[in-house]
């Protein structure tokens, strides 16, 4: 890109009228603080004509700038009202120059940013594994629970006493006990560790209580792996 190709322009690369003006200033090697308005206006209008000839939609901003340039040009052509008014600020180009200088600054800042090594393009980080507490859980269904109960009942230490004292613990009580056991904690407890009693009745009452709590959504039973042991935890969102 040496800017010597005359009017073979890529019109669409201009971000706006200021960008086009900066391009013209650079192409003609002009001093941004002392722009020959007549020359720049002529070339600017030529670009607009080309854009139109190429059937490109010329954004309104380009036309506003064209008008501004022609206005400044006309002011420059008029003789100063009187020689004594020679203040610096009287230059009709002043405002435009200030805008160009400021825009150029940010264009440079943008170029600086474009030189930065970009994350995900030039430099990379290790992609994070989504760390979820629930990872790898398998919701246990009724069959898993019954299998677990059978395993429990087959344990040697379970003695089948056949005592007459029925309902040592009621289902309701056991449910409350279990429910309270999990209040205020998110910890998962092994299924088997919940069965503290040694009588068959107690085991079954506990089992039924667990079933009831899981069914009502207050507790959750799951496995961490297929065929793995059962775990019980408080349900994440207690259903009201």
């Amino acid at each position: 890109m040496d800017g010597m190709e005359g009017y073979t322009v890529k019109v669409d690369v201009f971000e706006g009228p200021l960008d086009l003006l900066l391009h013209l200033i650079k192409q003609n090697q002009l001093d941004i603080y002392d722009i020959p308005i007549a020359l720049v206006t002529e070339q600017y209008l030529e670009y607009i004509r080309i854009m139109k000839a190429l059937d490109l939609t010329v954004a309104g901003e380009f036309l506003v700038m064209a008008a501004t340039l022609m206005y400044i040009k006309s002011r420059m052509l008029l003789p100063a009202p009187s020689e004594e008014v020679e203040e610096e600020g009287e230059d009709p180009r002043a405002e435009l120059i200030q805008r160009l200088v400021e825009y150029k600054r940010f264009k440079e800042a943008a170029i600086h940013l474009s030189h930065q090594a970009l994350l995900g393009v030039d430099v990379f980080i290790r992609p994070a594994e989504e760390i979820e507490v629930d990872t790898g859980e398998i919701a246990a269904d009724l069959f898993h629970l019954i299998d677990a109960l059978r395993a429990l009942l087959e344990r040697e230490e379970v003695k089948d006493f056949h005592e007459v004292t029925l309902e040592l613990v009621t289902l309701r009580e056991r449910m409350r006990e279990l429910y309270e056991r999990f209040q205020g904690t998110k910890e998962a407890v092994s299924f088997f560790s919940l069965f503290t009693g040694s009588s068959r009745e107690e085991l079954i009452v506990t089992f039924l209580a667990l079933l009831e709590l899981v069914k009502s959504g207050m507790l959750r039973a799951y496995q961490r792996e297929v065929f793995g042991p059962l775990w019980v935890t408080r349900a994440a969102i207690a259903t009201a």
Binding site: E15, P17, D19, E61, Y103, F106, A109
Partner: peptide, 24 residues
């Protein structure tokens, strides 16, 4: 990039200021 640069240097900034600088 231009817009990002303006926001980075001029923040806190409103859209009108960005457009005033960019002219678009």
């Amino acid at each position: 990039l231009e817009t990002l640069a303006i926001v980075a240097y001029r923040q806190p900034v409103v859209r009108a200021e960005v457009e005033q600088i960019r002219g678009v």
